[in-house]
Write a protein that binds this DNA or RNA. Structure first.
Lengths: 339, 339
DNA sequence: TAAGGGAGTGTAAGCGCTAACAGCGATGTC
DNA sequence: GACATCGCTGTTAGCGCTTACACTCCCTTA
């Protein structure tokens, strides 16, 4: 089933069929009708590869994320997708599972597909990629990682500011022994969150902290919390690298009979929808995912009659959201509870 | 940057470059090295569209889901993706948001991409699609909807059996007034779940039920529950169409001061990971998502040296999982509580 | 009435790649 | 020494589409 067969059946040339497909208005309506009829009858579906090849363009965006299972990434993706659709673009996604070799192969794949723009919402990085991407001339937006370049825009979150709000708040509630639950991606930005905690502790000699890490999942949050407590360390507050893992932490604490927030405070990060729906609802830091999605799209899709945006680094300040999972530190040194 | 430029730089023909790219073993290793060097230096990325067009094949699968935000769909997708990767296939996804016109356009898109196989994990349907797909000769797997055909395999869940387990269980615990929280996709399979509840109630005159529906999200579950209770109806158990919405229901109940399971029992469906991590953990029905993913892949990707599978309908029996969210019906007619 | 122009359609040259086939030295065989 | 064989590489015809350009009517306009 190709253009030619449709053309033959409609008694026109392939060019005319192509014009109908791309609804160029030059086609006479009677001709158009004939062609459309033929298309319908033949159940013809244009070959997108041929189209892209011949057209040279692609009207599609690539989105690469570390872990789509985490609603944080998904929410950004969702926004990008709907913005892109609104402007007639397709979007194709890829997961990296926080592995940089996956990042590399995904980016190669996207370049191979000749996407019109590429968003990398990832925590891992491969330095060589920057050069490769620069030379590809494709508009790129990196979230969290990478460095701004001619065609590369960076979006960053001011983790330090965010984490400081959390540690200050916890400190003001009397917490002194902190725990940090992170995930396995020990690269740049995640470390930013962790380092921000460590720095805050370093600045204040009354504070201490211990860390644990596991996979970026509900189960991972639970395991990391288990590991943190198994060591015998008795924090009064646990700062989690994100909401998903915080919900996992909540579960582990509940099973140990440790009440939140009476016995232990817990904080998340991202302000994912789930953080309002879990119990207790999470104190967390809001990252404006929709806004990020919009920004990404506006960087990637040139507004009609406009040149590429010149802004190269955008910093976002997370907003502190207090809910139910934090409270005053328990007054007396709490006896370790066993389930 | 195309094959020809690489060929020129490496002083070989385009065919040889192509052979290197497809690592045909016939190329002399010294030649191969020269070509690889040229590829590296030119930062050459083969154009996938040209490749697919010329090759005629595609080694990619399409996966279409109603709502990737719901971990149920995502888990299946994840399994398909990893199986596909293991066999050297790419997978490209699309969301339908439960809208059948989106389904149609997504399927068209996939056909246009000439995917090697197509999985539709959707609850909505468009009858005309079946014929279109049959004629496309692409191997297709439908989950929940559609009818088996020459090239179409169907996977179904025996919702009736599952729901019966739930209603029987609730009945044995003394529940008589039931609520059902569904979502807006009022087509086939979802209705199956709802109809199964209605039928169970019809079979047993001591039971009554009232239904409400909203979006398939946490928030939707909460809203539907609110609507259900706002009517003044006082169920002692709420059966939710899936876990995600059940977690939303849990939230609404908590805010109203209705304790689960003491004042109200709640059940989910799917046994998504979240159902273990929410509070209280959900009584639910397990649907083996990984198994489904594996089945789909095995239907779509022909095993080497094997013909297409002949199995056309596969029925899955959900398994009942009792957790914390269900308990005996409250003894006395409960006074309506206000927050 | 002839020239000009626009509306609608056809022709054909690619887009970048693959793969069948051809070519061509070097080696082996009788 | 003639010839088949093998290992490697080049030539080239598409894959299905888009699009510049050419062309044909038919309608204006002077």
């Amino acid at each position: 089933m190709n253009l030619e067969q449709v053309a033959r059946r409609a008694k026109v040339s392939t060019a005319t069929v192509s014009r109908v497909l791309n609804n160029a208005s030059v086609v006479k309506s009677s001709t158009r009708a004939r062609v459309e009829k033929a298309i319908e009858e033949l159940k013809y579906h244009p070959n997108l590869h041929a189209r892209n090849l011949a057209g040279g363009k692609s009207r599609s965006l690539g989105v690469i994320a570390s872990n789509m299972e985490n609603p944080f990434f998904f929410d950004i993706y969702k926004t990008i997708e709907s913005d892109a659709h609104a402007r007639g673009y397709e979007v194709v996604v890829a997961n990296t599972d926080y592995r940089s070799e996956q990042l590399v192969s995904s980016i190669r794949l996207m370049i191979g597909r000749r996407v019109a723009g590429l968003a990398a919402i990832v925590s891992e990085m491969e330095p060589a990629l920057i050069k490769e991407l620069t030379e590809s001339r494709i508009p790129v937006v990196f979230y969290d990682v990478g460095q701004p370049r001619q065609n590369i825009t960076n979006i960053r979150v001011n983790y330090r500011r965010g984490i400081d709000k959390v540690t200050d708040y916890l400190h003001s509630l009397g917490h002194r022994r902190l725990g940090f639950v992170g995930h396995h991606a020990m690269l740049g930005p995640i470390n930013d969150r962790m380092k921000a905690v460590l720095d805050a502790v370093a600045r204040n000699s009354s504070l201490e902290v211990k860390t644990a890490a596991d996979a970026d999942t509900l189960e991972g949050g639970r395991q990391a919390t288990r590991a943190l407590l198994a060591s015998g360390y008795q924090p009064t507050a646990i700062i989690c690298v994100n909401d998903l893992m915080a919900v996992g932490a909540l579960r582990e604490l509940r099973e140990r009979g440790i009440r939140v927030p009476q016995d232990m405070s817990v904080t998340g990060f991202d302000n994912v929808k789930l953080s309002e729906f879990c119990y207790p609802a999470l104190t967390t830091l809001h990252i404006p995912r929709e806004q990020i999605g919009h920004i990404i799209c506006s960087c990637l899709i040139p507004a009609p009659g406009e040149t590429a945006p010149t802004e190269h680094e955008i910093v976002i300040d997370p907003e502190f959201v207090v809910r139910e999972s934090t409270g005053p530190a328990p007054a007396a040194p709490r006896k370790r509870q066993v389930t």
